[in-house]
Design a protein around this nucleic acid. Sequence first.
RNA 1: CGGGAUGUAGCUUAGUCCGGUUAAAGUGCUCGUCUGGGGGGCGAGAGAGCGGAGGUUCGAAUCCUCUCAUCCCGACCA
Length: 491
Amino acid sequence: MAQKYTTREQDYSKWYNELVGRADLAEHSDVKGCMVIKPYGFAIWENIKDELDKRFKETGHSNAYFPLFIPKSYLSKEASHVEGFAKECAVVTHYRLKNAEDGSGVVVDPTAKLEEELIVRPTSETIIWNSYKNWIQSYRDLPILINQWANVVRWEMRTRLFLRTTEFLWQEGHTAHATRDEAVEEAEKMNQVYADFAEQYMAMPVIQGLKTESERFAGADETYCIEAMMQDGKALQAGTSHFLGQNFAKAFDVQFSDKEGKRDFVWATSWGVSTRLMGALIMTHSDDEGLVLPPKLAPIQVVAVPIYKSQEDLDKISERFNELGAKLKAKGISFKYDDDDNRRPGWKFAEYESKGIPVRLAMGMRDFEGGNIEVARRDEKTKEVVSFDGVDAYIENLLEEIQLNLLNKAKAYREERTHKVDSYDDFKVQLEEKGGFFLAHWDGTAETEEKIKQETKATIRCIPADREEETGTCMVTGKPSAGRVIFAKAY
RNA sequence: CGGGAUGUAGCUUAGUCCGGUUAAAGUGCUCGUCUGGGGGGCGAGAGAGCGGAGGUUCGAAUCCUCUCAUCCCGACCA
């Protein structure tokens, strides 16, 4: 008896929320806007984190850790930065509680007021640049290539598990360079690292590009991004990398002497991805049966379910699975043998489908006696009976095939829903009817962008890095345009 | 912060309009048993006093007042 869940068709948001629960990824905390990431969800995040961390190290970065609290005065040193974050900051004003006089519990002790309020970091540029100021004297101190894994707080009005929560986990890279070119190169390089990771590990195709001025990070001269398309046709910004120019160096007076002894401000970048990637992962591949995970990020890649009536049968089957499990583990494939007698096979099948485990094996006495095993793949929901001999190699190939298939399916989905439009009327109609990404000409002004946003709720996701050379006229104003940009509704 | 809605068992909900036995069901949980190739069948059992506070009444999950919380739609955002 299948349990009823909301389908993507019926209500995409509801489908997403139910999926997060049924795959046991996370749940709402009693703390408003905050989530509890459950062990299975966290295991996926750890896989994301481990691979990214490896790639950051490979590109020369080191990890460090800076404080959770930022003095209020730091935040206000960079004008556009504070303006961008001011409305969503949590503020610490006191450092002590005391027992309430009426015995009702504890209250804030009014005598323990902080001289200067502390902001819970919404991002760490200011506190980090305050340190960099002391670390940098000479060009010999550069570049500084640091990353930190941390939690940050942004007091959002409306939250959704993984996509937008008050507190979230992320990594933030913060680098300092002697030249503009080197900093730009760094920002581009890290955006490329994100793009490669998204495609190779998450099996999620992304478009690399540049944000328009109005979508840019507060305090950045240029924001690079990777944008992905979710299965409802909406865009999701999956990662950003910022060229910060000399803005923070000037705000914190970070200067260095070059080879000629000339003083100049340091050039900066920052870049980050967050637990939002979990949301992206879910909405890229999952179906109405539950989560679908790319093998490279699945905490369990292969699960095996025995089907038996007697203990003797189970013993025989277990021997086969244990033998196979050892072989798979030797190949670096994570394997779980579920011989829990309290759950029936059908229950387990449904459970592991909900959790998105890429490959499921089953063996009953029929298979055992025929020297066979049943192999089911999550991505296509197909299963076949194959010979037990050599099945380890078969599974190894299958995992690779699933990884590739997911990427290809996601790419095909995106291509189908990416449309070139040349008239604003056309754009409005198609945006409502089909959704997806729209390649259109834009005159480059914030006014036009704002008008489109107000009228259609679509924003410019990015100016694609690899766009075709094509001049044209803005679909709204008819003014000249140097090339097409991507419009879409976004998360 | 505006507009709308909802709080009843771990979860999903019925009951509320029109007050009246011991607050009901599904699912989950416990035990037993038959089972076992797609979320099992049968039997037994534990579990809530109805978000909170106050009020009306012989009597409140149901009516009134206040309060808290959550969800949806807007404004804001990775």
